[in-house]
Write a protein that binds this DNA or RNA. Sequence first.
DNA 1: GGTCGCTGTTGATGCAGGTCAACGATTCGG
DNA 2: CCGAATCGTTGACCTGCATCAACAGCGACC
Lengths: 246, 246
Amino acid sequence: MIGTTTVCAGAGGAEVCGGCSARRLSVCGVLEQEGLRRLNAAADHIAFRAGEVLVREGDPATHLFNITAGDVRVHKLLSDGRRQIVGFLSPGDFLGLATGDRYAFSAEALGPGSACRFRKVDYRKILREMPELEHALLDRAAHELKAAHDQMLLLGRKTAMERLASFLVGLSERARRAGGDGRLVPLPMTRAEIADYLGLTTETVSRNTTRLKTRGVIRLLTMHSLSIERPSELLQLAGLEAEAAG
Amino acid sequence: MIGTTTVCAGAGGAEVCGGCSARRLSVCGVLEQEGLRRLNAAADHIAFRAGEVLVREGDPATHLFNITAGDVRVHKLLSDGRRQIVGFLSPGDFLGLATGDRYAFSAEALGPGSACRFRKVDYRKILREMPELEHALLDRAAHELKAAHDQMLLLGRKTAMERLASFLVGLSERARRAGGDGRLVPLPMTRAEIADYLGLTTETVSRNTTRLKTRGVIRLLTMHSLSIERPSELLQLAGLEAEAAG
DNA sequence: GGTCGCTGTTGATGCAGGTCAACGATTCGG
DNA sequence: CCGAATCGTTGACCTGCATCAACAGCGACC
């Protein structure tokens, strides 16, 4: 089902989790020794390469994932090919919360990475035995739902520039959570992916990026990383802050 | 905090839940006698009138609600007044899942109705004691998240006609779940509210409604209810079904 | 039952962002 | 290091929906 995905061979036992850099960002971060050990016993540790498909929209929903390294794109398609990206996942994020019998979305790796993969039936059983994990997952779901509402506001009511600025603010916050200073922002996705996340076209994303660059709000370092030069102005453009001078 | 909300005076004890028509649609539907009794002990049974505010965006998030009668609008605002409605709630729906320290949305009654209101701290405690309730809530959150993803696809990538058709399909499904046949669809909200839910203007909603009417896909019964005359054509217009003849 | 205010409809016009097209920059395999 | 393929940028033009405007229908409340 997962195609070329490799299951890591070695490494059984709790020391895998002990050395996991994503743990402090993950739902499993709430577990103690014994809980971690049991969760880990149910996990396949998989590695994936750029472009690899983790989940395909419409397939039976058999697995859940906890991303431990790399970035993942989650998207939905219309029959004529129009695409909406509903989220970008990074280490610590959980994939499969919004899942019924079949996946309602596809998930594809932006670059190389890794994840803990669980069979859904196993995970269900574990949840029943570990209420603190279920509690953490509900917290996570609440955050995702809030983020989804924010994204609805963005897609339904914001202008192209407001969308792009909001997106960059979000990336910056994520970078800070991952340990950065929030000024240096990695852009692991392409312009087309940004466009499909913001409900725009690549051309519109490109034009507005150029405008931000020209105004000195951001500076492009490489094609896949930028620096935020005027954070307050960016916040204002995102429609997230009361009026301020420009 | 809730202003004019009235707390129902009489009726303590489990028979309140026993007679609750929303129970089979609610998270509390998973509870047995004893659980219901304890949940009910923590609930204020409130009644609300048309236009009444249940939750105000930005206020401290002190309460959670289970809607037992009537319809509720959930929305977010930008500082200049642009509004995005992120959902319409009906009996059985839970209000407050996506809540941190402060409400990130406002909730307002479309018409008269009622709800069970819980103090958040109480509800948290109850959840810890009743894992089956937490489990039901997680299920609910997963469904809401899936619905949110569908709405993102709608707002980001669908045309005005596709949005309206999708909306009507959704209302029809909800009507069926509530016990109707799915052809007769109540429209408890105004055109402006539909527009703010679909990321459109009232004019565009009106024009496309007229088009559906003219094509014989729907028939307006009153201003606030309609009948779906050609369900398959509506599904097709919503972009939810492969091509079919029109 | 009249009239006032609000909701909804329809028409005319404008514009933000989409589409189409060309070209420059980056990446990657060999 | 080279060349092909992909990705990103920029420009010209177009269109779907927003905006602006006028009016019609409906309901609420004297």
